[in-house]
Design a protein around this nucleic acid. Structure first.
Lengths: 148, 148
DNA sequence: TCTTATAGTTGACAACGGAAACTAAATATG
DNA sequence: CATATTTAGTTTCCGTTGTCAACTATAAGA
């Protein structure tokens, strides 16, 4: 195995800490937890996504995702709309408030990154973005790490 | 602001999900939660680190980190050693089992990454590593995102 | 029609981390 | 030296969270 791979792993793990719960909790995002934000983002990015699909996408059980959507709905960030073609299925859509929240949080973090990376040239930024995009696509295709 | 920055943020956030609790929980890591693993890794990487420093480093309150170390100690992954020069201070050191666990988890994730990235050439891997290292150093220097 | 599968919700439960109160040791001040 | 203050860490209480299992309801299959 290329010796770079364990180092890439270690860096990813450490970086993830900053963008995971620990970095996220203490922030401007007011009333959203990380998992709520991730769910909201997924709802925002995907038309008519079902609760079932949301759970799979976030690697949360169906009862877990149901409660996450409960909380988002109580906070008026999303609303449930039952499918007219399949009475079992519940689609989730973002409210206007939810859409605004997404933009706000994204901007907050982008500002933070800008303070950090603003000095780099566009070429470096492009390079970083390409590396991350490559990683993400590969990992998304592979799916979550599964138990042995 | 460079248009790449919001995209870098979005990619980092999504990647972090895979290396955060959601990706981590369902895995080979048996008896460790993510925050326990992060604490163990920090203990492993830092000689004679104190509980106080651990909490700061992981952005956890002192009561929180105290309990995390409790759990790691109950699992025989670390041990507390009170400082001889300052009776208040409690240094944490990894046990042999703890060291082995670090290697095991790191290998598990590296194997996963290898399945994903193994086809890339060394140059690409080096490039990804450099990008991540640059990001991580910058973010570490900046520290956790603070409330407004 | 009757059975089975699927989507989602609910209740009980345990894990987790924060706030505040607490102990104990070190340092500062007079 | 004596007392006050600061610092390190622990413990208790508590609210939040997500899972499991049981449940309802709708759809699909035999």
């Amino acid at each position: 195995m290329d010796k770079n791979i364990p180092e890439i792993y270690a860096l990813l793990q450490d970086l993830s800490w900053y963008f995971g719960n620990q970095g996220f909790n203490s922030i401007c995002c007011e009333e959203l937890t990380l998992v709520e934000y991730m769910a909201l983002k997924k709802v925002y990015d995907t038309q008519n996504i079902t609760i079932h699909e949301l759970g799979e996408s976030l690697n949360v059980t169906k009862s877990g995702i149901s409660k996450i959507i409960d909380r988002l709905e109580n906070k008026s960030q999303v609303s449930r709309e039952y499918s007219s073609t399949d009475g079992r299925v519940c689609c989730v859509v973002p409210t206007e408030k939810g859409k605004a929240e997404i933009h706000k949080i994204s901007k907050r973090f982008s500002d933070y990154l800008y303070e950090i990376l603003g000095d780099l040239g566009e070429e470096s930024l492009q390079n970083i973005k390409d590396s991350l995009a490559l990683l993400f696509m590969a990992i998304q295709e592979k799916g979550y790490i599964k138990p042995d």
